[in-house]
Structures are given as structure tokens and as C-alpha cells.
Design a protein around this nucleic acid. Sequence first.
RNA 1: GCGGGUGUGGUGGAAUUGGUAGACACGCCAGACUUAGGAUCUGGUGCAGCGAUGCGUGGGGGUUCGAGUCCCUUCACCCGCACCA
Length: 937
Amino acid sequence: MQYKHQEIEKKWQEYWANNQTFKASEDDDKPKYYVLDMFPYPSGAGLHVGHPLGYIATDIYARYKRHKGFQVLHPQGYDSFGLPAEQYAIQTGQHPAKTTEENIATYRRQLDQIGFSFDWSREVRTSNPEYYKWTQWIFIQLFNSWYNKDTDKAEAISSLITKFEASGNYEVNAACNDGVGSFTVEDWNSFSDDKKQKILLQYRLTFLSETEVNWCPALGTVLANDEIVNGVSERGGHPVIRKKMTQWSMRISAYAQRLLDGLHTIDWPQPLKDAQTNWIGRSQGAMVSFKVDGYDDNIEVFTTRPDTIFGVSFMTLAPEHELVAKITTTKQKAAVEAYIDATAKRSERDRMADVKTISGVFTGAYAIHPFSGEKVQIWIGDYVLASYGTGAVMAVPCGDQRDYDFAKHFGIEIPNIFEGVDISDEAYTDKEKTVITNSDFLNGLSYKKAMKTVINELEQQGIGYGKINYRLRDAVFSRQRYWGEPFPVYYVDGMPQMISDEHLPIVLPQVEKYLPTEDGRPPLGNAEVWAWDTRINKVVENIKIDHKTVFPLELNTMPGWAGSSQYFNRYMDPRNTKEIFSKEAIEYWQQVDLYIGGSEHATGHLLYARFWQKFMFDKGLVPVDEFAKKLLNQGMILGTSAIIHRVSGTNQYVSKRLKENHETDKLRVDVKLINSSDELDIEALKNWQPQFSDAEFILEDDRFIVGREVEKMSKRWFNVVNPDDICEEYGADALRLFEMFLGPLEQSKPWKTSGISGVYSFLKKLWKLYHNGDIFKVVDVAPTKDELKTLHKTIKKVEEDIENFSFNTSVSTFMIAVNELTAQKCCKRAILEPLLVLISPYAPHIAEELWEKLGNTSSISTAAFPVFEEKFLVETSKKYPISFNGKTRFMLELPSDMSQEAIEKTVMAHEKTQAQLQGRIPKKVIVVPGRIVNIVG
RNA sequence: GCGGGUGUGGUGGAAUUGGUAGACACGCCAGACUUAGGAUCUGGUGCAGCGAUGCGUGGGGGUUCGAGUCCCUUCACCCGCACCA
């Protein structure tokens, strides 16, 4: 009887669906385990073989945990809001909901055919109103909260109002906007409601603020840094300018320290933790205030090296700094303005990428050194960013290379304040060896002592203070897009008002066009029914807006990361219409135990999700403040692109080894046109794209050979391999085994379909082990010692491998086991039945089929994992490698229990030893019982 | 510039506390069975050499009886980044 993967796989996929085999529940006594994949975006291109890599790994782990007696939650869903669907809608006029629906159907079909053990009854989609209702709900919770630094947690905004009513804001220690002035109780009570709301807005965890964005007037939209190339938009090449816009922001900076501290409590990859640590960027230093000569204004700077304050020889402001216009002298005005204009045209990324060019302009103004009283020049330079710190730097050229280069370039003085150090070539940045000199009261001090002393002095004199700074910025939460979550917000006299929880969800309105409006409002500005009626609490036509009872709704939508910041909790109770999730569900599932996905999410999704989780923890909604206990990054699967060589300037193509005779250009062609010997199907190529229909080909040995190059698997390089084709030809079990067999999960590795025949023939050998021709041949006969040994060493190895996420080595282990059992002609149930359970997480369909043939009536997924027993592996003898000066010369089999002395005696007496020594007397004989013998000399 | 990662046969990769380098596969070579083979089976396959043997885990140095593994140094490639004051 033949192994027919198509029949078997279809049969069991239907069985699992019909029996809801993998449905998770909360109501039993088993320990729980929650395995999650990072949320997929259902793109129109469907899956390629790189996508399921992580899903296969989690599926193996989930199935293994079920065998180990756990109640496993292994859900899947779609991060279905996003830009590609919107772009497609702009081009074709089709509603993004429709194309998203179609894409999801494709994804689902592809996922199903790989045999994943997902609990599909819990599927969520971020673009579904029943789901985004809760995204909106969390937004409202954030709006109604402030961060109390004294209790170090988020609290209800009502507690802040209580404090204001008791003692103004003097006693309040909050994370809030810069520049919130002080006020007393009397002040507070005298404020208008409107003013009170404005003040409160500066404390809320989500708040409106002016943010600089990359605005493209021609496209009428805001662009991300990577959508801008050389200062113009990637699409269309239109100019882009920096523009201030009022947008919603999230006060993630309030959580900076807790986000850092939490990293020590979670089992995540160190590189990922490093990325987050750098992103949060904690630095310890001081705020120092410099007076501007001739003005009442001060320039505030943050510095990590206040110990070098006597080395300051100039200051640099960001060109956008608010004081620039005021303090620039008439003489310098033209130069400064020209520089500011030039800077405005550069994107932030441009400014940062360009390390080589040193540019800046003197403002003509001077600051007063707070200690020495000397005048220092004030410059502007685009290497200082307005968005970081105070947008101003005290420049210490002798201690900072960038300041040093700037000073050298513009001929500014470089005073040396380090003892015994030569700074004629470069700045001196070694903190540990620093001894300060030429610095008044800091002379002779080390870095550490000088830091303490100077901060003390700054605080004494009231011109500065010690401060911990984070580079983490508050996250902009508004997008000028259509296909995202609408905000549950309407505006009364320009002040945002939240819609009450009970009226959620606020459903995305219909629009005629998905582009921004002609006057530059976001796409929702096109909606005709997008106003809030406060009498009936419903969305009504815009024409009813009277600013008395009917008000305009927010036109922005939420960003992509909104929906993915809470989905892992929603999976615990996805159909709940009353709460985001029930207390029982969250108490049972707690948090994700294993989360697998790509490392590209390190500082986006994974940081925002941790932030929301901590907020929800503060609100008492979740029992733990980290959502994922363990996380793994799967590596990328690389494609093997096919390269053909075109003779330059012609439509003639030359086979790989003949290309040296010509001047050629490289062209990528679809890998589907190439066979396993790198030979091109010329006829197929001619039909592939019209440009090849009349092409000529120069062959070698009657064949056309292509070059191969390994690079990222992507539709754009025509090197994608579709899992549908693999499942059709080799089956899902072969695909699953092969993806794991490629190499360690976390490494990136090239895909070569030709290798799949190895795992496919393994499956056929496995099948044959249970069959003799057409007869199923498994019998109930006691197994031999050798058979038991094979089984138990396999159990041991596979269990260790799964626990260590070393899935590639367990595939080899299965191959070895099947090879050995085939050689032993094993057909004993006591061996072949447990073997199936070992294999079933990896190749579940064939395992189910053979399991059923063995007479079992329930799914193998519920079978217990076989228990390893050491006794079957006990050896009576050991083959020792006998080495001379570290090089193995021959093997010698000796009893396992032989003593060290006896081993030495036996080995030395052996004729081969004598032959190796040729009469020499060894200096030393090393015997490691159970391991090795090494004869030295 | 900063941060992180990876270097082992023709290819993907294996190697537990330092203890037989190259498991398991792909590919290749030879053979068997076949009308045929992109099926199946058997054997071989790190490199050089007829061989004895020598050389081999990016390069150089070190520790050790013994190093892919530990230490120092150096090179190459890949990924991420918000010049972070």
C-alpha cells in the first residue's frame, strides 16, 4: 500500500475541523500553556514558504505540550487594517474590507493545508468592529488616566482632579507635557472648564499635541521616513516638508523605566532586549541652564558629561530651536535663515545618516558660562535634533568627537581640561581614566567625583540639577488614513470628547474616495455621515452639525500597532461582548508562554504591546505586567534567485559559463522556470514576459544554465516558493519536516526545494515500516533489546530537542530511528506505536493515519508522550578511541566497567599501540573512563 | 559612527561539561532492477596523494595530554538604528 499524502492529509484536516480537535477551554484541571505566533498581515500575495516557518515551530511545540498533558491555547487571526489594502482601494476603488476579506480567505486556505492545530473558533481580525470596539475602549481608558510618578503607576484622571482641588499642582509628581505651569487651588478653581480640560489634556496618557511630520503636499499625506528618498517622496518624487500637525500621542515615555526594568524578568533573546534598551536610551547626567548674553532667556541643555563643563567653548542649537530667531544678530540673520531653510528640506533620517558633512552657522549671539562667566558662541547645526532632549547642546570639543570635529571645522577654540592628555588629533572620551584640570573647583577630580561635585554645585546655585534622560519619545498615534480604527472622539469647540463605552464601537464610515480631501483633511473628511449626535448617541449626517448637540468626529484613524497591542489578551476570550475579556479567562491563561516571530518587531510592536500591558496591569485588568514570558525570533528564509545574463544592449542571453566572453547585464527571472540542475526552460521564459518572446539564447552543451544568488525571499526578486505547490507534490508533512530540517530556527537560511526529496523519502520509509506490500504488518510481539534501545534514545533526544527548540536535529533523529528500525526489520507495536507519538508534532497527518490503522479510535493529538527509560540504554562495553598525541589512530572495544588502571594496561599491551610507538616510551597516558585514551610521547 | 549576529566539505547543517570533526540530508560517482526514470535499492564521497601519510572548523597567536568549543588578536559578510549630546 502506497503512501498517498494528498488523501491522508485531506482526510485528517477535515477530521480536525469537524471534531474541533484543537479547541481550547478554560474549565479543566490541566496546567495551561499559551503558544502564540506574531499576528500576520494578510497581504494580497499570499504565503510563501518563509512565512510558515515560525508557525510550524509553534505548532510542533503546541502539539508537544498537548501530548505532555497541557491545556494548550494556540490561536490565530489577522492584523487586517493596513496600508496595502488602502493603496489598492485608492487604485481600484474597491473597498478595503472586500479585498481584505479575499486575502484572508487565501491565507486561511493556505494555513489549513499545512495542518496547523490552531483553535480557529477564537480567530480575531483587527478590522472587525467587534474587535476594534475594544481597541477604542482601551484608548478611552488611556485618555482617562494619568501617570503618578509617586505611586509609579497609571491612575484615574479623577484622582488628579482631586489633587488639583486640594492643593493645585504643587504636590503633583506626574509624567506630563513640558511647560505645564504651576497653579494653586485658587487658580484651579478660578479656571474655566475649557482651561481645566486643556490642563488635564497635558497629563492624560493619550493626548493631543503638535508633532512634526513629513508632509507631502502633492500627495496630501504624511510619509514615513522610509517612504522618503533624497528628500522627495518615493512614490512620484514630490517634495516633502517638515510640518507641525496636531495629533494624538501616547505617553509611552512615562513607562520608560518600567519598560527597561521589565526586560530583566522576561526570557527574550538578548539582541532584542539590547535593541529595546538602546531605543529607550536611558542616560544619566544633568540639566544646565546657560544665560543668553543681553537677553533674559536661558538655554537649557542636557548633558551626560557635566564634569566637563569647563571645557565648553561653544553651544549648538537645533535650527528649529525657539530662541534662534530671537537671538540671531542682524549681521548673521541672512546666513542663519538660509541654513534653517536648507535644514527644513532635509528629513530627519537624512540629517542623521550624514555623519561626514559638518555644517552649521554662527548666530552672532553669546551665552554666559554658568561658572566661569565667560562668553561662549552660540551656533546652530543640524546634527542637533529638536526632538531629542532640549534641542540644544553644550559643546565640549576636547571631550566629544563630534563637538571636536565641529570646532576644528569652524576654527573654534578647543580648551583642554584633561590632565596629561594630548588632544591635538582627537577628543578624549575615556571616562574611567579622566582626571579633570583647568576647571576651577573640579581640578584633580575623577569623572565620578567631578560628576557628583558639579551636580551638587549646580543645584546649590539653582542653575541646574541632576537628571535621568530617556531618548524614548512619546508615540504619535494619529494616522491620516482610511483603513484603520476610528477614534471614539468628537470635538466641542476644539476640545476632544470621549464617546461613552456603551456606544462603542464607532464604526468606520463609508467614503467615496480613499484619498485625503482636496483641502488636505484625512480621508475620513470625505465621509458624509460622520458627526456625533449627543442626544441620541449615534453617528449622524455631517449636515446636522450645529456645534450644540451634534459635533464633528475625529478624522484621523489609529496606527497599525493599535490593534496588535492587545490581541494576545483578547484571544483568551474573543467573543465576549460585555468585557474586553472575562476575569476567569485572564486568570486562567495569564500571559503568553511562548511567542515566536520576526526580530523586525523589536522596537515597534513589542515595545508598544509591553507598554499597553503595563497600563492594563496598573488598571487591574491583567494579572501580570509582561504579556509574553518567553520569546523567540525565527530567522529569515532566503530565496535562491535565478539570474540570466543578457548581452548588453541586445535581446540576446548567454548561458552562465559562457558569459565571460561578453559584456552582460544581470536579470532576475522567475525561479519556477528553472529545474533542479539550474537549467532554464526557454519556452516557458518566452511566455513569461513579452520582452523574452523574440529573445535569442546562446547555449552551452545544448542547455541554458542560469546563475543562482541567495537573497531575501521576495516577490520582487521572483524567487518566492509557494507552499501550495510543495503541499501538492510532497505534502504538508514533508513541508513541515523540511522547513525544520533546514537548520536552527533562529538562523536565516536559504531555501532549495530540491532538498525536500530527503524528508519525502523519509516519510515513505516510515510508511513502509508499518506495511509489507499492501498489508499492514504491525504485530504484538515483544521487542528486542536493540529495538527498545533505538526507541528510547529517540525519545530522549527528541524530548531534549523540543525543549531546546532545536527542531532541525530531531528530524535527523527520526531519520536515524527509521533507518535503524528498518535494518532491524522491526514491526512490533510496542516500538512503532510510541514512535508515532514522537513524530506526530512534526508530521501530524501521517501519524494520525498510522495511529488509526493501529486500531486507535481517538486522535493521536491526545495521546501521552512516551516516557524515556534509562535502563534500555545501558551499555556493557564502550568503543574507546585510542589516540597518540591527540590524534586518534584506532578504536578498541572495552567493558564499560573496566577500571582506569586496567584500561591503561590493556591498551599499552595492545599490538597496535606497540606498532604506533615503535619502541618509544610514552611520557604520559591519559585515560578518561567512558571517553578516550590519549598516549603522549 | 553605534548596536547585534554569522563564519565548519560542492550545498543545508551536526558535534552534551574541552574528548573519534563532518551525524542526518542534498548533490555527485559507481552498480543493481527496469522499455524508461526526476521511481526504488546497494556501495562510495572533507582536501592532497598510487600509497604510507600529511593537511583540515575565516586568518594569526595562546592555554591544554587534547580546542570547532576557552583566552587574545585580526579579517570578511549579514541585519538593525532615532548622530542621543
